[in-house]
């Protein structure tokens, strides 16, 4: 591998990592707060991409799609949380996980009947459809834009969680939902907010990825699995973990495919297995110690 191809693969890896982060961050936050692995997360990603595709086709504007698709998907997320998951709070997390699996099945079939089984793609929006040459190497502008956008979202999320009142509530809820509730935080509303926010992030990732990656039936489970691997490596419920693990998985995926095409899947899972052997709780999650 020459230096040039290395730099280009590095860029691709970074792009993929940050897209993964958008998806994994939502998954991780939902888990951290609600103890639910949202198995419909991949479906929300794909739904975001499809809705974005339709908006782009109707209006001719990718930017409207980038804005409205996540909002629409968040509304659906809200409905799922309010009318399905909330019914199961008392029953335990496993039933909620199973419920999200069912929701994923339903969404997948709805998407199949609405958008069909074709491989779709979205054109790169005009102002970003070009290349810039840096150090003699051509870089696609859109990919660089995705990197910047992803980093901005990561920064924004970090500020939201660490520096705002809503973030403080989320952190309190992650640590101890009962205690947070006793402090007067409206837990059901917080859950709904985070679930909707998480699905919106997945959809945002779906729209942002659509000019680079194709859109097709089955992508939902591929994305879900990668996001799950990210979350397992990073540690469930930590934003930091999701960020660094996204980089690890994204890079492993891109470089694995370039260097070991037949065994690239192994690279990612070998990393995961290795992490689990050494730190079963993930890289960034502190071991839970309760006083009792």
């Amino acid at each position: 591998m020459t230096l040039d191809t290395f730099v280009i693969q590095l860029t691709n890896g970074l792009v993929f990592s940050l897209l993964l982060f958008l998806i994994a961050a939502g998954l991780s936050l939902i888990f951290g707060l609600m103890d639910v692995v949202n198995l419909s997360h991949g479906a929300f990603y794909l739904l975001g991409a499809y809705v974005g595709l339709s908006i782009t086709r109707w209006t001719g504007s990718f930017w409207l799609a980038l804005l409205f698709s996540p909002l629409l998907v968040a509304v659906i997320g809200l409905v799922v949380e309010r009318f399905l998951l909330r019914q199961l709070y008392r029953r335990g997390h496993l039933d909620q996980v199973l419920c999200t699996f069912g929701v994923g099945l339903i969404l997948a079939d709805v998407m199949r009947s609405v958008w069909g089984s074709y491989v779709e793609s979205v054109a790169i929006p005009a102002p970003l459809d070009g290349q810039i040459v840096i150090g003699g190497l051509p870089f696609p502008v859109y990919r660089l834009a995705v990197i910047v956008f992803g980093l901005l979202i990561a920064l924004g999320l970090w500020l939201l969680i660490e520096r705002t009142l809503v973030g403080a509530m989320i952190r309190a809820g992650v640590n101890d939902a009962q205690m947070a509730s006793a402090l007067g935080i409206n837990i059901p509303r917080l859950f709904a907010l985070v679930f909707a926010g998480g699905t919106a992030l997945a959809a945002l990732g779906g729209v942002a990825a659509s000019p680079i990656l194709n859109i097709y039936q089955g992508l939902d489970s591929e994305i879900l699995i990668l996001a799950l691997v990210v979350v397992v490596i990073g540690g469930l419920g930590t934003l930091q973990g999701a960020f660094w693990a996204s980089l690890i998985v994204g890079m492993a995926d891109v470089f694995g495919k370039a260097l070991l095409p037949e065994f690239s899947v192994f690279v990612t899972y070998a990393i995961m297995a290795g992490v689990l052997l050494v730190r079963p709780q993930g890289l960034f999650r502190r071991e839970q110690t309760r006083l009792a």
């Binding site: 699995i225 192994f266 899972y269 079963p280």
Partner: peptide, 20 residues
């Protein structure tokens, strides 16, 4: 939940291997 996700990941590994 971690067990659930791990078993899922391991089966995906075979899925990927079978395809690639």
């Amino acid at each position: 939940i971690s067990f659930l996700m791990l078993t899922l990941a391991f089966s995906q590994m075979l899925f990927g291997l079978a395809i690639r």
